[in-house]
Design a protein around this nucleic acid. Sequence first.
RNA 1: GGGCGCGUAGCUCAGUGGGAGAGCGCUCGCCUCACACGCGAGAGGUCGCUGGUUCGAACCCAGCCGCGCCCACCA
Length: 861
Amino acid sequence: MARDRLKALEERTRYDPHEVEGLVFARWEEAGIFHPEPEESADENYSIALPPPNVTGALHMGHALNGSVQDACVRLARMRGRRTKWIFGTDHAGIATQVKVEEALAAEGKTKEDLGREEFVKRVWRWREEHGSRINDQYKRLGASLDYADERFTMDDDYVRAVMHVFVQLFEKGLVYRDNYMVNWDPGTRSAISDLEVVQRKVEDTLYLIEYPLESGSGSVTVATVRPETMLADTAIAVNPSDERYSRLIGEAAILPLVGRRLKVIADEYVDPEFGTGALKITPGHDPNDFEIGREKGLEEVTVIGEDGRITEAAPERFQGLAVDEARRAVVAALREEGLISGTQPYVHDVPHSQRSGRRIEPLISLQWFCDMTELARPAIEVVEKGRIRFHPESPWTDVYLRWLREIRPWCISRQLWWGHQIPAWYRADELYVGERPPDGDGWERDPDVLDTWFSSALWPFATLGWPGDTAEMRAFYPTDVLSTARDIIFLWVARMVMFGIEFTREIPFSDVPIHSVIQSPEGKRMSKSLGTGIDPLDEIESHGADALRFGLLAMASTQDVRYSAQRVKQGEDLANKLWNASRLILLGASEDRAPSAATAETVEDRWILSRLEHTTREVTELLDGFNFSPAALRLYEVFWSELCDWYLELAKPRLYSENNTAVSGVLLHALQRSLVLLHPVLPFVTEEIWSFLPGERGLLAIAQWPEPNDGLIDAQAEKQLGRVIDAVTELRSYRDAVGAKASAQIPARLLADGYDEASRGQIARLARFEFVADERADGDVLATLPIPGGAVQVLPSDAFDPQEGERKLAAKREQLRGEIERGERKLAIKGFVEKAPPEVVEEERRKLEEFRRALERLGR
RNA sequence: GGGCGCGUAGCUCAGUGGGAGAGCGCUCGCCUCACACGCGAGAGGUCGCUGGUUCGAACCCAGCCGCGCCCACCA
């Protein structure tokens, strides 16, 4: 049967991912190897929690890279025999999902208010049922070995219970509280948002200079503002205490124009005398700084801009109901009329905007839920300082993380949305009840707000495993091992998981945090669908194969942002094809009865390739363990392509095609098997497919054993010996190319060098297409003497090429050698170098100089 | 305003103190019985600029010029 399958290989000269990927994935799923039973302890087992994609989402390049990274880790662990779980699930993604469903409603001409809250939430669930499985299929296309059989969602009943539990616990501890406080109000989503959801954008504004008449009637104070409409809520004027221009005014009062309120002039260090006029209008209701000064000084807080973005009744009647920008024009006009605007100037500055809606943030005082983070941050700082959680690379992410946590501020966790975890707080008159279950009695009304999505995300590594229950899953897979992500959510998510993980499970949620590149568009822009700069990973899988995309992403990614490189993906595609064809050569040529495990070296090149494979095994294992995916992928490419295919396979062919090919078959099959194993975490599909053609009974490659490097096969002598053969062949090929010898012509020559046995001579001759003849002609006939390790090759006359060309090539070679010799001599003549450089460096320099001198000698002149 | 990072071959990027590397692209020669998504041989770089440390600098230090990111309450 295996033979019949092999037969079919003869026809398939190209690797076709389409034929293979779907079937291979089905084999993995049928075998159930992605779903581990919850047994043993987390120490023995291995787990990673996938950063949950949005239910609304489609796989983008970031997912594809992060998926490739995690899958490499997970597959490596699984092959090491660890019970391995890659936790799969999706995030309800409050705002993003709500907006999406609202858009769908809008297409029907409806708003969410038309449906009402309950109906709207039902609608979102229905939306999720229809679209939620798309992302699963996309991860499967990538080859991700996630535990699809045990999928989680942040709105599952169990998960909701965990979120409620956490909220209540934090409330009871006094860390979660409700307060009237300055928040970032997003007029777009009509919700408060956290500091992390705010982005600064440069905006061109006008700075207005406004005269505030003094109560005493002795003139006025001039203040500067870019938001004249907020003057309606001014409750003080502040100057710097050391500012002599104003010291006489401190304690006096001014009259707020248009409103008539009496404003005390106060002193505060915060005011910069250099900026504007040095006098600052204080608006505690609409400016974060003023808010803090106001709370400190006990100033009145007036709110003139409401959550609907319109002027409130706290303002004079003529402005009430106006939108903010209308109000600004009206206020400026009114002030102008009274001659109170003494100047304007253009002013460019950073202004906070909502990352979600893009609208300008309206800072205002609002009754919201907050979480005090200081106490939670302390242990989260400590575990990273002590190295119990390590970022990879350590610099700069460790410092970035620590700096943020050390200056952490309260987190506004309530959102004025309908889709999400509704806050478990109930109100009745002045009473407040917070609990996991609704309160007894009548008349209670539940807080309509939901929690920030990141609040529930912070529980992901343990709430997915059944916490707060004491489950077998928790025991088997928590703490997890690795958390892989790009840097953009280190604060939003990683730090919060660490804080909540330690607080609620008394364990760190993971121990290693590899931070990978952000992939930009080929033009260096952000990859974004709306900008049209996105490249769809599924398109890439479709046209190049999942293995190609995975290799490409891992190879191009490093620690800094990189531009998407189609060439790297192409390189991966070529590698898959190369692997396929090298396998055809080996599988179709090897003698039937050899098992790959029975490799016995017969020749120097056998010992060489076995040795190289052990080196590579050690190297690649170390690179992967250190989360250095790009060097690992490129190293595998190089070893497989150059060393195995270009050299070993070419050297092995004569023996493979001969009668007695048993020994070489064993080595070839071993080399192929080892290559497949090492490449599998990067190229799972093509390696699994080829694996199924290897002779003998074997299970799936995905659960085959990852090798321990065998130092017994390291053979420095064979490596040195074959290195000489390779150098000699390269030297002779270069010569024949330079002199324009016909590709098919054999060049007669004498090999005069030590350390080459009969087999080596034959190999050099065959690979360089030289014909080494016995010593029968006089030296005068020699056209050229080519230095090779341990001696030289004398080229004899023939009609293979024009000798003139040969002479030119030799002249160039001599020139090059003279340059090298001169360089070496100059270096060794420097006293400081010989005296201060390490002896082995000096020795190496002398050795090379000698070698160059000998080579030049052989070339003549 | 503070912090971090980047500037290396035409392009995209590796390389952290002892003779400049990869993939793609380019040039030349090959359909050599695994692969033309291939094989062989090449060309191509004052490693942003200026100083400094060192016997020796792409690599360490300082300054400058460009580009990017993160954090931050100067109206």
